[in-house]
């Protein structure tokens, strides 16, 4: 059965995050109060913390996952790794690559508790949208990773963007990525489409007929993989009307939807951790 490989230190899973750093990411999310760049970086930093939390045991962090983060648009026609001096790293190495630690508060049992929130990268909204470059970099990383991880759960690539690529059509390279496979199945590509419009959000559509009128929505939907059954089951807890054939695509995502998208993936895959 595909998408059921045990995730262990011998056979870790892989998450690659792609984040749009183009100028338009400085605009606020529709109905939100923060820029898309801030929401995207906060969501990924939170999700990295969540993944680390799942991998943390009494003695420290176990390498159940490997992580890559690619930013595209920090400068014209440029995609770069957001982890300094490295591409894909075992998750425990994130401990040594923390950019800064923010003091945050959480309420537990009515008591306000301080805790240290690590941050790996800051929001950036700078230039154009070289999404093809970003996916091409991801393809190179993943091709190399898969060669030495054929028994692992297939890689999951999560792209967070607000629109059209400025360096061509990413469909071909995305299809190439979706063809990359371990013995457990093909790589998954998910897209989180951040929008400034106040159109009703769409989460995990199963057909184009469910998409809103947006010139980039169809392209982003086509680029998104069908969710494995295990993820559909978890997504159903949040989205009751999700159907078989649902794709890893959310449109007009607010921070909450973005976090849910990331969480559904990590929860489904983490349940296979041994």
């Amino acid at each position: 059965m595909p998408y059921s490989a045990e995730i262990s230190r011998n056979n870790p899973g892989l998450f690659v995050f792609l984040v749009d750093q183009s100028r338009s990411m400085s605009h606020k999310i529709g109905g939100g109060s923060k820029s898309k760049a801030i929401e995207a970086s906060d969501a990924i930093n939170k999700q990295l913390n969540e993944l680390l939390n799942r991998c943390t045991k009494s003695e420290g962090v176990r390498n159940y996952f490997e992580i890559g983060i690619i930013g595209y648009g920090v400068a014209r026609d440029t995609a770069t790794s957001l982890l300094k001096d490295s591409q894909i790293v075992p998750i425990s190495e994130l401990e040594t690559r923390i950019l800064k630690v923010e003091k945050r508060k959480q309420i537990i049992e009515g008591e306000e508790i301080d805790f240290d929130f690590p941050v790996w990268f800051d929001p950036v909204a700078a230039s154009d949208t070289p999404m093809v470059k970003g996916f091409t970099m991801a393809k190179e990383w993943i091709s190399s990773w898969i060669n030495s991880h054929m028994n692992s759960y297939p890689p999951v690539i999560i792209n967070i963007s607000d629109g059209e690529a400025t360096d061509g059509d990413p469909s071909a390279v995305v299809n190439d990525i979706k063809e990359l496979a371990t013995y457990d199945g093909n790589a998954q590509v998910w897209n989180c489409h951040l929008s400034e419009s106040r159109v009703t959000p769409v989460s995990y559509p199963s057909s184009e007929s469910k998409l809103p009128e947006d010139k980039y929505a169809r392209k982003m939907f086509e680029m998104s993989s069908e969710l494995p059954d295990s993820m559909v089951a978890i997504a159903k807890e949040e989205y009751k009307d999700i159907e078989q054939g649902a794709r890893g695509y959310v449109f007009n995502a607010q921070l909450e939807d973005l976090i849910k998208l990331l969480d559904i993936g990590t929860r489904a895959i983490s349940s296979l951790m041994r």
């Binding site: 913390n49 939390n53 420290g60 805790f115 240290d116 690590p118």
Partner: peptide, 10 residues
Amino acid sequence: LKLFVKNKAI
């Protein structure tokens, strides 16, 4: 405790 262990142990 290290940072991540501390954050989880609470």
